[in-house]
Design a protein around this nucleic acid. Structure first.
Lengths: 158, 158
DNA sequence: ACTTGACCTGGAGTGCACTCCAACCGGTAG
DNA sequence: CTACCGGTTGGAGTGCACTCCAGGTCAAGT
């Protein structure tokens, strides 16, 4: 299999495949007499898994680390498992975060639908209270948001 | 509330707040006599919602579009609802994709655990078949990956 | 009066993850 | 023989989403 075939089968572009090889995500393939890369089908399983890791939000650095461990063979099994377990926790968190957002969306869509229907709705339930040309200074009904103690997304980047 | 307070309460940096304002995600706030931005609490609900849109994978362009609609007030209700409905579909898809990956992870972790325990495991189930330093030419147990009509006229180098 | 610290602006720099490009080479079809 | 296709390289460019910085202003505290 040459790089074009692999691109077609994997859904990545030839550029991306070469890029992945350059940074170390993909192992250096054999070359034919003309210096062209030749791949065998097993690489597809690896690319597929990489793709899944990416699709679940694993950054390139961690994918790189995993790829690196992989080249070390069986000796790195435990480390790889630990990485996957850490990642699994992250994926689970992502799922529940998304599920929560889903219900916020549902609520909001519902609210909008009712507003479109002309139903009287407390505008305080909409985050979209116009701040600029409607700024009345004495708002008293603060609605919910339980004291938002700021720790929203203050981590992540080392 | 000045920008520092808002930063603390929202979890965004002052730089990010100014950046969001610059690109149009946040409305231009009033200024005090000294030219400093002053915010009222309602902005927090908006930032929170923006954050959720971001956390669920909505890119800056769409957030920008939504923010823009928001400034148009009630006239844009329907468009906003439609955006949210489109986004909701995307979020649902993301959730099921993640859920699927979760089971792949579970399987893989389980596989590794069994391998660590020395249990004999068909290495074909691992994507991590070493391609480079283990390339034996006569492999016959191809496992799955359905045949993939070999366009591979690979004249294997001598 | 002076210092401190929070704020202002415009613009440059960063990191990720590609994506594109020019210039070249090798094998096959017409 | 030559056109062309698909491959090669190194390096430049893109888009997103910030993040940092220099150099300045302003208001309040000691």
């Amino acid at each position: 299999m040459r790089i074009g075939d692999l691109a077609e089968k994997s859904g990545l572009s030839t550029d991306t495949l070469r890029y992945y090889e350059k940074i170390g995500l993909l192992p250096k393939p054999l070359r034919d007499a003309g210096g062209r890369r030749i791949y065998d089908q097993t690489i597809l399983r690896w690319i597929d898994f990489l793709d899944r890791l990416k699709a679940t939000g694993m950054g390139i650095k961690d994918r790189l680390r995993y790829a690196d461990l992989r080249t070390k063979g069986g000796a790195s099994l435990t480390e790889r498992r630990e990485m996957l377990e850490v990642h699994r926790v992250k994926v689970r968190e992502d799922i529940s975060r998304l599920a929560e957002m889903l219900s916020v969306l549902d609520e909001k869509i519902d609210l909008y639908r009712r507003m479109e229907a002309g139903e009287p709705v407390d505008p305080a339930f909409d985050n979209c209270a116009r701040t600029e040309h409607g700024a009345q200074p004495g708002l008293k009904g603060q609605t919910h948001e339980p004291s938002t103690q700021a720790g929203t997304r203050a981590d992540a980047k080392p």
